[in-house]
Amino acid sequence: MINPYYMQLIILVGINTIMAASLNLILGYTGQLSIGHAAFMSLGAYSSALVTLHFGFPFIISLLCGALFSAIFGVIIGIPTLKLKGDYLAIATLGFGEIVRIVCLNLDITGGAMGLRGIPKKTTLLWVVLAVLVTVFILNRIIKSRIGRALIAIREDETAADSMGINSTYYKILCFGVGAFFAGLGGGLFAHYMRFLHPKTFDFMKSIEHLCMVVLGGLGNMWGAFIGASILTVVPELLRSVADLRLLIYGAVLVLMMRLRPQGILGPQTDIAPAIEKIRLKFKSIWHRLARGKT
């Protein structure tokens, strides 16, 4: 029997992996600095929870509703803002994130400052594992496809990509929509796990946390998203025993990590698969040597 606390951490790692992976598509592969990812999460969370509460749809439909709503918003937001570059895009997404939070805090339908209560608990480990796999699978397919190559071209040099005939605006909006879709999915899982929603948690610091996960794990690397999400979910919990020094250490760790490995734990190009393959080959050769020694 799994201890519910560890089970909860695994589920949160899963949800954060979805958040980090979807941000990775926007940030790591397309090179668009977005610091409003928590807003998409909250849109997905609120809309899927409201669909469940008001219409009683099956869980999967609620999740898809939340994700779709978030994706539609992603496209609507993306059309004007993606004209902006670099830090200006970052600050526009930050502003958008804050606006979403303030609106959620003041609407009646979201429960406002009292929060949204009584969401049924439907998210289980199985759902989260499935959602992580589907997310990573689809994102991987996108990255390996023609779309993915276009996105990477935009990251490397937008002007050059444009002149090669890539419609960069179209691809950027597409990537924003897809990223928002999966962030909404993560939000829906989160809402149906926590059973309660309040805008406070989807603030600017939450977006920063997602950003840290992606950068810490390694930009443009799906494994990185998973590793970053795991570390930033588990480390604060491990630091609970040092109570008042918890966030102090957390901050110092971020600075040190960037000093020691600014490209993230996994670099952009490295992959865990070759690393494992290398270890396997090494074992194989040792095994062969041992076997040869015997005969």
């Binding site: 029997m1 799994i2 201890n3 606390y5 560890y6 089970m7 951490l9 695994i10 899963g14 992996t17 480990l125 594992v129 992580v132 796999l133 990573v136 699978f137 991987n140 799906m222 494994w223 998973f226 795991s230 588990v234 992959d271 865990i272 698969a273 494992i276």
Partner: peptide, 23 residues
Amino acid sequence: KKMIMFAGVFVCLAMLLAVAGCA
């Protein structure tokens, strides 16, 4: 292969965490 590996590692880590936490 990579997808399966990803799934495998995720499940393994999940199990590891689960085992780490006893009653």
